[in-house]
Design a protein around this nucleic acid. Structure first.
Length: 766
DNA sequence: GAGCACTGC
C-alpha cells in the first residue's frame, strides 16, 4: 500500500523538484547544481548518490546507501574512519528501525507529531532523516530544528556535524543569540526557539525554510507556543512547508488535535518511538510529610545506610533550602561514618545562579571507599529544577522527590510576576523519576502519598504563556503581523485580562495606537531583545541627550545583578558598593560601577581581579557588555543617535533620571507621608517598601523603580529619585489627573498642576 | 535589612 502510493506521487513530485532546480532560489551559485562545477570543494553533486534520489519520495534504503558510500554525499570528501564507527552506533538507536515508517508518514502529510522518550535519538536522527529526504542543496531552503536552550542547540549541532562528517558551521550549523555558526553551505540549522521567532519578525513566512522541526515542544516555552501558533497559520498559506513537532509522550494527543489545520481535518498523524531507559521503581510515603526538607534529608540518609551503590539526586526548590539541606546531610553523614562505618559521601549543591565551575563539580566521580574493601562511596546532588530538564547527570540511581518547585506566576490585576513554591505536575514527577533510570534500573522516593499523586497533582505544568506578563509577546505578535489577537489560535489561550493588561501597557507606551495598531515606535521597540519599557526608554533617550548612558543602564538591567555579596563578607561588599553609590538612585549607581569597570579595563588592569576586589560579578558585567554591543548595533540600524551630555554639565545626571521616565513612567511610587518609609505605587495603589539592597540613603518623595518584588514583603527594587513635574511633562496622558482615583496621589498631582500653571502664568506675565 | 525556579531574544 505504502509503496504504491509512493509510486503514484512520484511523477508530480519529480516535476516539482526539477522546477526548483531550474530556479536559482537564493542568489548563491553554490546552491545551483548546474554551476556547482565552478566551485572546487563543492562540486560533487553530479556524482553524488543523492542525485538519484527524489525529494519527498526517498526511501530509508536509498538514504542508507548514500550514508554507506565512501564519499560523503554532502561534501564530496572521503568519509573518515570515525564516521563509520559513529554510523554503526546510530543504527543501534531505537529510532533507526522506524526510518522508513517515518519517511512514509513525512511524505503523506504536511504536519506530523513525533513522540520519543529520552534515549530514542530523535533530536539527532530525525533532522538527518529529513535532510536525506528534503535534499536542500537542490532547492536552497534550509531545515531548522529548534531547542529551548542554547547549550542544547550548540551541543546537538556539534554532535550531528560529527555524525555527518562535516565541519560545524558548514553543512550543519547553529544559531543562538550572540553566536551564529552557519554559513552559505548550511543545510541543517539548530537554533533556539527564541532565535527562530526573532528571524520570523523579518521573514514572517519563514521562507528560508522547507522544514521546521520544533523539538521539546512539551516544555511549552513561551517561544515554542508562539511558534506553534504561527506555524499553524503559515502552513495554511505555504503548502511547501513541512512541520514536525517533537515531544515527550504524555501530551501527544493534544498536539495532534491542535495541528489539524482545519476543523474538518483529522488530527495530525503521530509517530511514536520507544526510548531507551531502565525501569524505575516508585515508592510513596504512606502519610503526607509535614516538613519536606526534613523528610528529604532523612530519606537521603536512609538510602545511604541501606541501599546498594549508586548516586542520589534530591530535588528541592531554591538556593537557601539546598544549602541548608547540604549542611544537614553532611553533618549526619559524618556521624554515620564515625559510628556505623558508612561509606563516604560527596554532597553537591546545584542551582542556576551557581557559577559554572561549581556546577561542573557535579560531574566529579563518586568518592572511593575510605579504606580498601570498605563500604563504597557515593555522590549526592541536591538540585533545583535545573536537573529536571537542563542538566543530565549520568550515574544517578536514586531520586528523592518531595514534589515541589518554585514556579513563576503572574497576577494580571496587580501586574506582578512572582515566584511561588508550588506542587509539581505529574509530568514533572515522571521526568524526575526518569532521572534514576538513565544508566541502570533505579528507585524514586516520592515524599507524598500515592493518593496525592493521583488526585492532587495536575497532569502538566501550566505552560509559560499562562503564567507570564505578555507585553513583550503581544508586541512581537503585532510585529509578526497578527492583527486579531483575540482569535489568534494559541494552543492554550491566555486569560483575556492578561491580554488586556498587555495591550493597555503597550498603548500607554505608545507602541500601539488607540486602535491597537503597531506604531513606528512600537515597530522599532520590537526590534530590541528587551521588555517594551526598556526598549521605549532606549529609543527615547536621544531626546534627553544621554542615549550612551541609557544604553549602558539598559544593558545592566537586562543581566543578573552585578553585585556580589558573600555571606561571610557582607560588610566589606557593602562598603565597596557604597563607593559607587550615587545619592540620587540605584540606576546611577549601576552606571558608576559600569564606568569604573570600563575604566579599569582601559587602564589595562586585570579586570577579573579588579571585579573580585570590588565585589562585582565579572561574569555579569561582561555579559552586560555583550548585550550593550548587540543593542548598539540595533540602534545603529534604526538610526538612533548615540549621544551624551558632557559629564561636567550639571544636567548630566538629571538628563538620565528624566530619560528613565520615558519607559518607566508607569513604575513610579510616592511616599505615603513625610516621616513614613512606605510608598504607594501610582494608579494601582500598592503599598511598598524600598528594597534593602538600595544604595540610596536619602528618603525621597517620588521614585521610579525597575521592578516590583513580592517576597516576605512588597518591595520596589532599583529606584531613582525623580521630580513629579517631569511626569506631567514626559507622560501627560498617563498623568492626566482625571484618570486617577481619589487619594494622596491624585491630590499631589492636582497641587502639582496648579504649581506648574502658576509658574507658567508668571512667565507669561513678564 | 532582603535573597536568587529555569529559560530565551
Amino acid at each position: 500500500m505504502a509503496d504504491s502510493s509512493r509510486t503514484n506521487k512520484r511523477s508530480s513530485v519529480e516535476g516539482e523538484a526539477q522546477d526548483s532546480k531550474r530556479i536559482k532560489t537564493n542568489g548563491d551559485e553554490k546552491y545551483n547544481p548546474y554551476l556547482a562545477h565552478l566551485n572546487e570543494d563543492n562540486g560533487n553533486y553530479s556524482n553524488s548518490p543523492l542525485d538519484k534520489m527524489h525529494r519527498h519520495n526517498t526511501t530509508a534504503l536509498e538514504a542508507s546507501r548514500a550514508e554507506d558510500s565512501d564519499l560523503n554525499p554532502w561534501t564530496g570528501r572521503r568519509h573518515s574512519e570515525n564516521y563509520f564507527k559513529i554510523l554503526k552506533t546510530r543504527r543501534d538507536l531505537p529510532v533507526h528501525k522506524q526510518r522508513q515508517e517515518f519517511l512514509d508518514m513525512y511524505h503523506s502529510t504536511q504536519i506530523l507529531v513525533f513522540v520519543g522518550e529520552t534515549g530514542s535519538g530523535k533530536t539527532t536522527q530525525i533532522p538527518q532523516y529529513v535532510l536525506y529526504d528534503e535534499l536542500p542543496q537542490t532547492h536552497g531552503k534550509l531545515i531548522a530544528c529548534t531547542q529551548p536552550r542554547r547549550v542544547a542547540a550548540m551541543s546537538v549541532a556539534q554532535r550531528v556535524a560529527n555524525e555527518l562528517d562535516v565541519q560545524l558551521g558548514e553543512e550543519v550549523g547553529y544559531s543562538i543569540r550572540f553566536e551564529n555558526r552557519t554559513g552559505p553551505k548550511t543545510l541543517l540549522k539548530y537554533m533556539t526557539d527564541g532565535q527562530l521567532l526573532r528571524e520570523a519578525m523579518h521573514d514572517p513566512e519563514m521562507s528560508r525554510y522547507s522544514c521546521i522541526i520544533l523539538d521539546e515542544a512539551h516544555e511549552r516555552t513561551l517561544a515554542t507556543d508562539i511558534l506553534m501558533a504561527l506555524l499553524k497559520e503559515i502552513a495554511q498559506r505555504r503548502s511547501d512547508l513541512k512541520i514536525i513537532v517533537m515531544s515527550a509522550t504524555l501530551d501527544a494527543q493534544k498536539f495532534q488535535t491542535y495541528f489539524s489545520l482545519r476543523k474538518e481535518d483529522p488530527p495530525a498523524p503521530l509517530l511514536a518511538v520507544p526510548g531507551r531507559t531502565f525501569p524505575v521503581e516508585i515508592f510513596y510515603t504512606p502519610e503526607p510529610e509535614r516538613d519536606y526538607v526534613e523528610a528529604a534529608v532523612r530519606t537521603v540518609l536512609q538510602i545511604h545506610a541501606v541501599e546498594p551503590e549508586g548516586d542520589i539526586l534530591l530535588f528541592l526548590t531554591g538556593e537557601e533550602e539546598i544549602e541548608d539541606a547540604c549542611r544537614r546531610i553532611s553533618l549526619e553523614v559524618d556521624d554515620m561514618v564515625r559510628e556505623s562505618d558508612a561509606g563516604p559521601m560527596s554532597i553537591y549543591p546545584l542551582y542556576g545562579t551557581l557559577p559554572p565551575h561549581q556546577q561542573q563539580k557535579i560531574f566529579d566521580k563518586a568518592p572511593e571507599p575510605l579504606k580498601k574493601g570498605g563500604r563504597p562511596g557515593r555522590k549526592c546532588i541536591v538540585a533545583t529544577n535545573i536537573a529536571e530538564t537542563s542538566l543530565t547527570i549520568d550515574g544517578i540511581v536514586y531520586v528523592v522527590d518531595p514534589g515541589f518547585s518554585k514556579q513563576k506566576i503572574y497576577n494580571p490585576r496587580s501586574r506582578v510576576e512572582s515566584l511561588l513554591v508550588s506542587p509539581i505536575s505529574k509530568a514533572s514527577a515522571q521526568q524526575r523519576a526518569g532521572r534514576a533510570g538513565r544508566t541502570r534500573p533505579g528507585k524514586c522516593f516520592r515524599l507524598y502519598t500515592e493518593k496525592a499523586f493521583k488526585k492532587e497533582l495536575i497532569e502538566q505544568t501550566y505552560p509559560e504563556i499562562l503564567r507570564s506578563n505578555l507585553s513583550n509577546t503581544i508586541l512581537e505578535l503585532k510585529k509578526l503581523g497578527i492583527e486579531d489577537l483575540v482569535h489568534f489560535d494559541f494552543m492554550d489561550p491566555p486569560a483575556p485580562e492578561t491580554m488586556m493588561r498587555a495591550l493597555e501597557e503597550l498603548n500607554y507606551l505608545a507602541c500601539l495606537d488607540d486602535d491597537g495598531n503597531l506604531t513606528r515606535l512600537g515597530s522599532m521597540a520590537s526590534e530590541f531583545p528587551l521588555d517594551p519599557g526598556l526598549a521605549v526608554m532606549l529609543i527615547s533617550s536621544p531626546e534627553f541627550y544621554c542615549s550612551n548612558e541609557i544604553l549602558s543602564i539598559t544593558s545592566l538591567l537586562s543581566v543578573p545583578s552585578i553585585w556580589i555579596r558573600p555571606n561571610n563578607n557582607r560588610k566589606r561588599a557593602d562598603e565597596m558598593k557604597a563607593q559607587f553609590a550615587h545619592p540620587d538612585g540605584d540606576h546611577l549607581t549601576l552606571l558608576n560601577a559600569y564606568h569604573a569597570y570600563k575604566g579599569a579595563e582601559q587602564n589595562g588592569e586585570d579586570v577579573k581581579n579588579w571585579c573580585h576586589e570590588h565585589f562585582l560579578s565579572f561574569r555579569h558585567l561582561s555579559s552586560a557588555d555583550n548585550v550593550r554591543a548587540q543593542l548598539k548595533r540595533i540602534m545603529e540600524v534604526n538610526e538612533i543617535e548615540l549621544i551624551s551630555t558632557p559629564f561636567q554639565n550639571k544636567d548630566y545626571y538629571t538628563n538620565i533620571r528624566r530619560a528613565l521616565l520615558a519607559g518607566f513612567f508607569m513604575q513610579v511610587a510616592m511616599r505615603e507621608s513625610s516621616n513614613s518609609k512606605v510608598y504607594k505605587t501610582v494608579k494601582d495603589d500598592q503599598l511598598v517598601l524600598i528594597h534593602p539592597s538600595t544604595s540610596v540613603t536619602n528618603t525621597y518623595d517620588w521614585v521610579v523603580y525597575n521592578e516590583f518584588v513580592l517576597t516576605t514583603k512588597q518591595y520596589i527594587r532599583t529606584i531613582t529619585n525623580i521630580r513629579p513635574e517631569w511626569l506631567l511633562e514626559i507622560a501627560p496622558v498617563y498623568y492626566d489627573v482625571d484618570s486617577f482615583e481619589k487619594g494622596e496621589i491624585k491630590s499631589a498631582l492636582v497641587r502639582l498642576n496648579e504649581k506648574v500653571r502658576r509658574r507658567q502664568a508668571m512667565k507669561g506675565g513678564r
